[in-house]
C-alpha cells in the first residue's frame, strides 16, 4: 500500500517536473539571453559567460519602452476594472435571476468569445478612425472590454453558481440588511472569483498584439508587445535581440506581481463547509 503510494507520488512528481521544465525552459532562455553581451549572445550556452545589465539599461534609456509600459499598464488596468465590474453584474444576474432573454445573453456572449478577432481588425480600424478613437487609450480599452467580457461573465457565473444562496437568506434571518448580507457574507465568498477573473482578463489585455498593432500608430497608445516589435538597436547595425529579451523579461514582471498579489486572496475551497456534509 505504502509502496504504491510512494511510487505513484514519484511518477506524478516526475510528470510535473517534465511539464514545468517544458514550460519554463524558453522563459529561462530568454532571461539568460537578456543578461548576455552582444558578443556572447549566440554562443548557445544556457548560462551566460559574461553577465551584463546593458540590455536593461538600453531599453530604459529610450523613452519608447517606458511610454509603452505606461500605456500597457494603464490600458490593461482600466479594461480589467471595467470588464470585471460589468461582468460581475451580468454574471450575478445570470446565476441568480430568471429573466427573459437570459439564454440569448449567454449565447451572444459565447458568440463574441468565439468570433475570430482577425476579421474585426479592418472594420474596427475604419470605425475608430472615423470616431477619432484611433491611436488613443479608449481605442484599445473598448475592444479589450468587448472581448474580455464573455470571459469574465463565464468565469464569474461559474464562481457565483458555487455560492450557496441559502447563506444570503440565513444572513437576512440573522438580522442583516441586504447590504450587510452582501458585504459580510456574500462578498468574502465572491472575492476569489473576482480576483481570478481579474487576473485572466488582465493577462488577456496585457498580451494582446493584434489590436494593439492595428489600432495604434504612435507612442500615444502603443502597448509593450507592439513596442517590442518595433525595437531596433542603437544603431542600424546593432542586433536588438538582447534588448528585446530584456524587455520581454521586464514585461512579465507586472503579470507576476499581479498574480502574486491576488493569489493570496484566492483561497481555494473557501465555500466548503457551508452546506451539508
Amino acid at each position: 500500500m505504502a509502496d504504491t503510494t510512494t511510487r505513484a507520488k514519484l511518477r506524478w512528481g516526475l510528470i510535473d517536473v517534465i511539464v514545468v521544465v517544458f514550460a519554463l525552459v524558453p522563459v529561462l532562455w530568454i532571461a539568460s539571453l537578456s543578461f548576455k553581451t552582444p558578443a556572447t549572445l549566440t554562443d548557445g550556452k544556457f548560462w551566460p559567460r559574461e553577465w551584463t545589465l546593458d540590455n536593461y539599461r538600453s531599453i530604459f534609456d529610450t523613452d519608447q519602452f517606458v511610454r509603452a509600459l505606461v500605456n500597457s499598464i494603464g490600458i490593461a488596468l482600466i479594461a480589467t476594472l471595467i470588464a470585471v465590474v460589468l461582468g460581475a453584474m451580468a454574471a450575478y444576474a445570470i446565476s441568480r435571476l430568471d429573466f427573459p432573454g437570459k439564454r440569448l445573453l449567454v449565447g451572444v456572449s459565447l458568440l463574441i468569445a468565439m468570433f475570430p478577432q482577425v476579421s474585426l481588425v479592418s472594420p474596427l480600424f475604419e470605425i475608430e478612425r472615423q470616431l477619432g478613437l484611433f491611436d488613443t487609450w479608449p481605442g484599445l480599452i473598448l475592444p479589450y472590454i468587448t472581448f474580455a467580457l464573455p470571459l469574465a461573465i463565464y468565469t464569474l457565473s461559474a464562481f457565483f453558481k458555487q455560492i450557496p444562496w441559502d447563506l444570503e437568506k440565513a444572513a437576512k434571518m440573522d438580522g442583516a440588511t441586504q447590504a450587510q448580507a452582501f458585504r459580510r457574507v456574500i462578498a468574502p465568498l465572491a472575492a476569489p472569483g473576482l480576483f481570478t477573473t481579474a487576473i485572466l482578463v488582465f493577462i488577456f489585455c496585457w498580451n494582446d498584439f493584434l489590436f494593439a498593432i492595428t489600432l495604434t500608430s504612435t507612442e500615444r497608445a502603443r502597448t509593450v508587445p507592439v513596442a517590442l516589435s518595433f525595437f531596433t538597436g542603437e544603431s542600424q547595425f546593432e542586433d536588438p535581440t538582447g534588448a528585446i529579451c530584456a524587455a520581454a523579461v521586464v514585461i512579465t514582471i507586472p503579470i507576476i506581481l499581479f498574480v502574486l498579489f491576488f493569489q493570496r486572496r484566492i483561497v481555494s475551497g473557501l465555500t466548503s463547509g457551508a452546506v451539508k456534509g
Binding site: 437568506k169 440588511t177 463547509g273
Partner: peptide
C-alpha cells in the same frame, strides 16, 4: 423584512458562513 420579525431559521443545508469560525457564526446575529 425578515430582520424585523425576530425569528430564527435553521436551514436544511445548514447555511453556515464558511469564512467564519463556529464562534463567529454563532455570534453573527
Amino acid at each position: 423584512a425578515p430582520r424585523d420579525r425576530d425569528i430564527a431559521m435553521v436551514f436544511q443545508s445548514y447555511a453556515l458562513y464558511p469564512n467564519m469560525t463556529v464562534r463567529e457564526n454563532m455570534a453573527f446575529p
